[in-house]
């Protein structure tokens, strides 16, 4: 038994998942400035409505407050963070030293990603690092915890960082047939939980999960289905047409378009679209709960944290469990 009472990290997310509850994670996007107050405000909105909140790491390759800095502020504000870490901006030295710092600041969950390519962001001229990939990052963070050693094999003397380790998977990325196996690789690398890309095409996700369950991967790693409320029909169309690896069926776009139809007042029109977006999201969550192998949902309300209390309430996900 470790000092964590048998838990790997002792994080709230780990406890909720281990207890078999249907988990809820949300997302908190750090600001494009150094204002701590933004984090506190967003944390106050999410607190009590999610078991933990992802703090994005220079999302879409745009410079924002660091996920660890913002994560530490979330800890102070009483919201458990899932600190995201991409392989784009740092080599293995910087990553490990940041992980030591993050743990010292109270962070207990880390999500490992490749990271959007910098051509999409506000510094397309930047060098990309990719010293290691997301699979190897999972192995590295697990090694810090379970092998008590750095990636090079050197022993960590003193306190070692013991994170609950997350990874991501895009069920809609190609090649589709390889995706369940890739998820299996992440489980093999030691990931404790996985959050998926936004799901709008439920039949396709169901097929993906059927294959994942056939492989038994859902028993090795907790799978949180990615969902999110659409704000406008434009956003739905953009995701359908412009974002590589996203699958937004026309039916969803049509629903978003129909929502605002016939409403003259601009504010009311926008509100109607947002309401429909929330409705679609709640329906998605209800469907996710029925899919074998799904252990929770990751709700991505991008720059719309206010939607989380509404969605979790309507989806019957409240109150969030308290696990000792």
């Amino acid at each position: 038994m470790s000092e964590n009472n048998g838990f790997k990290s002792g994080s709230n997310l780990e406890k909720v998942l281990r207890a078999g509850h249907f988990a809820v994670t949300a997302e908190l996007g750090p600001p494009k400035n150094a204002d701590a107050e933004t984090i506190r405000k967003k944390a106050a909105i999410l607190k009590g409505y999610a078991d933990a909140a992802n703090i994005t790491d220079n999302q879409t390759a745009i410079v924002r407050m660091s996920s660890i800095g913002a994560g530490a502020l979330a800890v102070q504000a009483g919201l458990e963070p899932v600190v995201q870490m991409t392989c784009r901006d740092r080599n293995r030295l910087a990553m490990q030293s940041d992980l030591l710092g993050a743990y010292a600041l109270g962070v207990r969950n880390v999500l490992c990603l490749s990271g959007d390519h910098q051509t999409f962001g506000n510094h397309p001229q930047a060098k990309n690092v990719h010293d290691i990939d997301s699979m190897q990052l999972v192995q590295m963070v697990v090694g810090l915890r379970d092998k008590n050693s750095f990636q090079c094999g050197e022993e960590i003397k003193g306190v070692n960082p013991r994170f609950f380790v997350g990874a991501v998977e895009n069920p809609f990325g190609d090649p589709f047939d390889f995706r369940p196996y890739r998820l299996g690789k992440k489980a093999k690398a030691g990931a404790d939980f996985v959050q998926t890309q936004l799901i709008y095409n439920v039949p396709r996700f169901r097929e993906f999960m059927r294959r994942v369950v056939d492989l038994g991967v859902h028993e090795q790693v907790k799978i949180l289905a990615g969902v999110g409320p659409l704000k406008t029909a434009g956003a739905a169309k953009y995701m359908r047409d412009q974002v590589a690896g996203m699958d937004v069926p026309d039916e969803v776009v049509n629903r978003m378009e129909a929502a605002g139809k016939g409403i003259e007042d601009k504010k009311e029109k926008a509100a109607a679209a947002r309401e429909e977006g929330i409705k679609v999201c709640v329906e998605l969550i209800e469907q996710m709960r029925e899919i074998p192998g799904v252990a929770g949902v990751h709700i991505m309300a991008i720059e719309w944290e206010e939607a989380i209390p509404i969605i979790t309430e309507r989806a019957g996900l409240l109150p969030r469990p308290v696990v000792a």
Partner: peptide
């Protein structure tokens, strides 16, 4: 590979192309 990945495609692989543009093969 635009990200020099060693363990399979990232989530941006779509219809055989790389996320950075539709001209680049994944």
């Amino acid at each position: 590979c635009s990200k020099q990945l060693l363990n399979g495609p990232c989530g941006g692989s779509s219809k055989g192309k790389c996320e950075i543009n539709s001209e680049t093969d994944c």
